[in-house]
Write a protein that binds this DNA or RNA. Sequence first.
DNA 1: TTTTATCCAACAACGTGTCGTATAATGTCG
DNA 2: CGACATTATACGACACGTTGTTGGATAAAA
Lengths: 196, 196
Amino acid sequence: MKHQEMREATSRAIMDAFWSLYRDLPVEKITVKAICEKAGCNRSTFYEYYTDSYSVLEAIEEELLDYVRRKLTEELPASLARSFPEIRLDAETLAPLSDMYSKKGEYFSILTGVKGDPYFQYKYKQTVKELLTQMLDDPAKKFDLSASIVAEFTASALIGAFNCWYPHRDEYPVEKYSMLLVSLLTNGVLPAIQKL
Amino acid sequence: MKHQEMREATSRAIMDAFWSLYRDLPVEKITVKAICEKAGCNRSTFYEYYTDSYSVLEAIEEELLDYVRRKLTEELPASLARSFPEIRLDAETLAPLSDMYSKKGEYFSILTGVKGDPYFQYKYKQTVKELLTQMLDDPAKKFDLSASIVAEFTASALIGAFNCWYPHRDEYPVEKYSMLLVSLLTNGVLPAIQKL
DNA sequence: TTTTATCCAACAACGTGTCGTATAATGTCG
DNA sequence: CGACATTATACGACACGTTGTTGGATAAAA
């Protein structure tokens, strides 16, 4: 095996080992030793790749966020553009999102859950907010406080709703969930409550 | 000094020491040793009160949440009732909230910030959701998944928006903020974006 | 064969949590 | 009221586990 391949494989093994532990343990309980036992490498090798347990988490998060950025700032806007002239928030238009969640759902639900990482939430929200402000016609509005509040409102709401839905995704179909979200975004919360 | 007074004082000293460290350090970097040095007590004494650093954080959070619950489930509903018949979301009606944030703002901003505690966010959201579901006419809806999602959506949105607005509360009047929120809740996000 | 890079065993340092013990506060009886 | 017994609070010392590093062995690349 070539050096570069080997390095890739070891790094990946450490990431995977960390994640399998992170599923049921909070970060602070995950020791470098435990990661290495699972990854099948010496503990010293770990320090060739990462400085500590947290830097593994960060690497996982960055990888996920790259994926998210691609989905949210490339595929989704392209899909929305296809729904021109009006913005149709139907299943087809939102396909990039359902695709993202079906592939990476577990990562989101754990990272934004009760044992998750607030720093990830912050970075994730920033990404969502960037997308939202991109959709504004007037770029000057991006620095407007009202726009920031609306963006923060929306990003927080979307992330929270996902966390609530995701564990029940088998009994509550994604289409129904999407429609509920669309209704909440386009008509507001109060009408949705009355319709329940 | 009496036993009970002493116990109270030591416990408080440990909490304060922890918080002064937590201002600039993430939890995992806060050692029991450092807490005790600041609190001026022996490390063994620490374990008479708390099991580890995290349990100090939890105690601080619980104390704060007791305060939040009192504000949100007693003072705020009472204040809203006084604005009868219509719900006026003005500075006077929302006084319990601004009071809460002016007194405990630092706690919220740190606990819900990038180095904060996702578990606190969870408990805080639960409290807000309880308040929201209390306002529902039909108690049976409380156990409905759609209702849960809407509640989570709303609670997350409100907390996020508040955190975004609060640091700028001096330049952005509470009335304007309240009106924005009302618009977001009653008409949805999309109309609000177009209106910006 | 030389060079480069990955991998590993062993070491010292540190933080952790738990002992047994000393000291101070409270309760009880002469 | 004062001395002794009881309780509970604070502390020093210990054994243990984890950490991060260093120098050397092994295998791939030049």
